[in-house]
């Protein structure tokens, strides 16, 4: 281990990067399938089936990224895991119940008696809403340094709404890619509404983080760092503007550029995520505990890292394989 320098420095950093990557992949992947759930009440019954068909083969693996992210937090930064999750006790519980309700609905709505289908649709929608709202609430509380005050609750309530609308945007972008005809046209309309969640959410987080923490303010607004960082918000704004233009022209007659909104929204989520990671580094519990203070013993981290370096490329490989198997427009889900 000593060949690579001080393992108490680079191991926590490596795990912070891995955790960040898992959270980002989770937010994008489960973001689109949660978003599809959020959009559920706006669709006709047949469209609902098609919407579920577009995410059916993927949702389970998508949620596994959440388990990996929380697992890395648990494994690499156990103290932080305890502090963050006890501080977010109720929103976590609401999210978990939401995940349960929507997760079981996938199978039950297709296999329970037809008379019950409406109930399972409701369970899918309510579960998606609970999950998205509580994740947005947790994001807000995290930015507010996990402090429990009426002002922080109010901010978290705002981010809850914005993230949910933001998820509905990426969900709509996914549907533009995976569906056709009336549903696709409808999805373009949803995306035009959902993009506001993205804009307001990005704005709220960008404004609030530096205002809450002078440390974050200094990181962003001192020369010369500010110059290097300037492209981040500028590119984000440009991408949003491009999306706006694209949505006015979609769907195109030969379905070209159906991939565009989804791809661009991945880029926007990634940029926003990098911005947040930069703001909070080196803290894992905001302003309280750094990744270096919270890290587990290097021997244990090393064992996990070795496994991760072997297995993660395989996971990414067969995830890509699965998206290739189910590429193209979504068709009715069939066990045949």
């Amino acid at each position: 281990m000593t060949y690579f320098g001080d393992p108490t420095i680079w191991l926590p950093l490596a795990f912070a990067v891995l955790m960040g990557l898992s959270i980002l992949i989770y937010v994008v992947l489960d973001g689109f399938d949660l978003g599809v759930g959020v959009l559920f009440p706006f669709a006709e019954p047949a469209q609902k089936d098609r919407m579920v068909a577009s995410i059916g083969p993927f949702w389970d693996a998508n949620e596994t990224w959440l388990v990996l992210a929380i697992g890395i937090l648990l494994v690499a930064f156990p103290t932080a895991h305890g502090q963050i999750l006890t501080a977010l006790y109720l929103p976590v519980a609401i999210m978990l119940i939401g995940l349960i309700l929507r997760g079981v609905a996938f199978e039950f709505r297709a296999k329970a008696p037809p008379a019950r289908k409406g109930l399972w649709n409701l369970s899918f929608y309510a579960g998606s809403m609970m999950t998205a709202l509580s994740q947005g609430y947790m994001l807000g509380m995290y930015i507010m340094g996990l402090e429990q005050r009426p002002a922080t609750w109010a901010f978290a309530a705002l981010t809850a709404v914005f993230l949910t609308v933001g998820y509905s945007f990426i969900g709509a972008a996914w549907l533009i890619l995976k569906t056709e005809g009336a549903l696709q046209r409808k999805a373009v309309g949803w995306a035009k509404g959902g993009i506001w969640g993205l804009i307001l959410g990005l704005g709220a987080v960008s404004l609030a983080s530096p205002l809450v923490s002078p440390r974050i303010f200094d990181k962003w607004f001192t020369m010369p760092e500010a110059l290097f960082l300037a492209p981040l918000p500028i590119i984000s704004a440009a991408l949003v503007a491009l999306l706006w233009i694209a949505l006015r022209r979609l769907p195109t007659r030969d379905d070209r550029f159906a991939w565009f909104p989804f791809t661009v929204s991945i880029a926007i989520f990634a940029l926003a995520f990098c911005g947040m990671a930069y703001s909070f580094y080196p803290y894992v519990v905001p302003e309280k505990l750094t990744i270096y203070e919270a890290a587990s013993a290097p021997e244990s981290l090393f064992i996990v890292l070795i496994g991760t370096l072997f297995v993660l490329p395989m996971i990414l490989g067969y995830t890509v394989l699965s998206y290739r198997v189910f590429r193209g427009k979504a068709t009715a889900l069939s066990y045949e």
Binding site: G56, P57, F58, D60, A61, E63, T64, V67, L68, G71, I72, L74, V75, A76, P78, S296, A297, E299, S300, I303, V304, G307, T308, V311, L312, I315, Y318, T319, L321, S322, V325, F326, L333, S334, Y335, E336
Partner: peptide, 30 residues
Amino acid sequence: GNIAGPLLAYEVLTAFFLEAVFLGIMLFGA
């Protein structure tokens, strides 16, 4: 955590993703 952590991590890495991804193909990919 130094003992439970790696064991849980290996469960996620070697089992959860494997079953989750291939379940999609098993159920809907025939």
